[in-house]
Computed example of a mutant assay.
Amino acid sequence: MEAKGLKRNCTGNLETRVQEETLPPTSYVTWDIFLIQASTSLEKLKILCKEDEENVNPSTLIKLYTQAILDMTYFEENKLVDEDFPEDTSLQKVKELIAILSEPEVVVKESSLHPKHSDMLGPELLECLYWRRGALLYMYCHTVTAREEGQSKKRDVLKKCLIDGISYLLKMFTFRCPLHLNEEVSFQDTDTAKLLSEGIFSDTHLLATMYTGEMCYWGLKYCVNEEPENCDIDTNGPGTSSTLLKESLEFREIGEKILRKYISICEGPLKGQAWNTTNAKKILNFFQHCHH
């Protein structure tokens, strides 16, 4: 597929998505700006796609397409949160949103214009796509585990969502290399250098470590003895580890490692910056005393 095919995929997919959305009711007016932004990106894409292929950078097209998807899905995600993830419909909606957030990488792969997704999308957009999928599954699992029935019903689905959510968040840390510290290089701000050496480039990266730790806790507490059954959700997408999906995730090992990192950062270079470690320490204590 050449640049022409990329144009067709971007505009066709996105126009369908935007047209499927309706004007939000008054309770969602806070979030309707994101649908407006998505629509604006679509119009920009249409204009660019009318130009000669030689004058259009494919990277510009896919980035506009990706930003529109991020805006549109953010609106939908906040609707789910505001509605407290309705039991009858939220699982299917989460599945749909995960699939939509996977589309930019699928389009890039099908275009065959670049051997790597990062060459066209760039690390920041890729991090955002993986963060949004992981955070969405985190919020869904948070709601499910808070409901009494969620602790005894459909644990196979919960486990699948936890494993996929953890996989997405861990993948988020792979698109940029941590800063390498050594004695030959001096830094004026040692705290910032320490953060960069740990792969923490933003607040979102740090929050992702805590989310991962919490999902490992839920997995160990509710799902570790459950055998996978036929799930009615399939969150498979680019970057999801097939190995992790086929085998039982080592919730304790991953959880302990990433929460120790979180605590070390919050009580080290970010000490005094209002990052709370109380819950992280409680989960670590659970890991150490749980006999699963």
Score class of each variant (00 low, 15 high):
108 V>M: 02
230 N>C: 09
17 R>M: 13
27 S>N: 00
290 C>N: 15
272 G>H: 11
73 T>P: 04
174 T>N: 13
62 I>G: 09
140 Y>A: 02
5 G>V: 03
157 V>K: 11
137 L>S: 10
63 K>N: 14
193 A>Y: 00
158 L>F: 08
235 T>Y: 08
204 T>A: 13
262 Y>F: 15
159 K>V: 01
201 F>N: 01
20 E>W: 02
169 L>M: 14
13 N>W: 09
175 F>Q: 11
45 L>C: 02
127 E>F: 07
1 M>D: 04
249 L>R: 05
256 E>G: 03
60 T>E: 12
217 Y>G: 08
188 Q>A: 11
283 I>F: 07
172 M>A: 08
24 P>H: 00
54 E>G: 10
217 Y>I: 06
188 Q>L: 10
33 I>V: 03
75 F>D: 07
254 I>E: 08
90 S>A: 13
141 C>A: 14
15 E>W: 00
234 D>C: 13
116 K>P: 00
178 P>K: 04
266 C>Y: 05
280 A>H: 12
198 E>F: 08
167 S>G: 14
189 D>W: 12
128 C>Y: 03
55 N>W: 11
107 V>P: 01
181 L>Q: 11
242 S>Y: 06
89 T>C: 05
150 G>E: 03
179 L>I: 01
232 D>I: 07
286 F>Y: 15
106 V>E: 09
86 P>A: 02
155 R>C: 08
28 Y>M: 01
23 L>N: 05
67 Q>W: 13
204 T>Q: 10
263 I>P: 06
290 C>L: 06
54 E>D: 14
279 N>I: 14
253 E>L: 12
63 K>S: 12
113 L>A: 04
277 T>G: 06
12 G>V: 00
11 T>S: 07
49 C>R: 02
131 W>P: 01
140 Y>V: 01
253 E>G: 07
69 I>H: 07
238 P>D: 05
287 F>S: 04
91 L>E: 07
71 D>Q: 10
157 V>G: 02
137 L>T: 10
68 A>K: 09
266 C>W: 03
17 R>D: 05
1 M>P: 02
266 C>R: 02
26 T>L: 00
98 I>R: 08
217 Y>H: 15
227 E>I: 14
43 E>K: 10
251 F>K: 09
206 L>K: 03
192 T>C: 11
117 H>G: 04
115 P>Y: 09
251 F>H: 11
255 G>T: 03
224 V>L: 11
131 W>E: 13
13 N>C: 05
58 P>I: 13
163 I>R: 12
70 L>S: 12
173 F>W: 05
226 E>S: 10
106 V>F: 03
59 S>G: 12
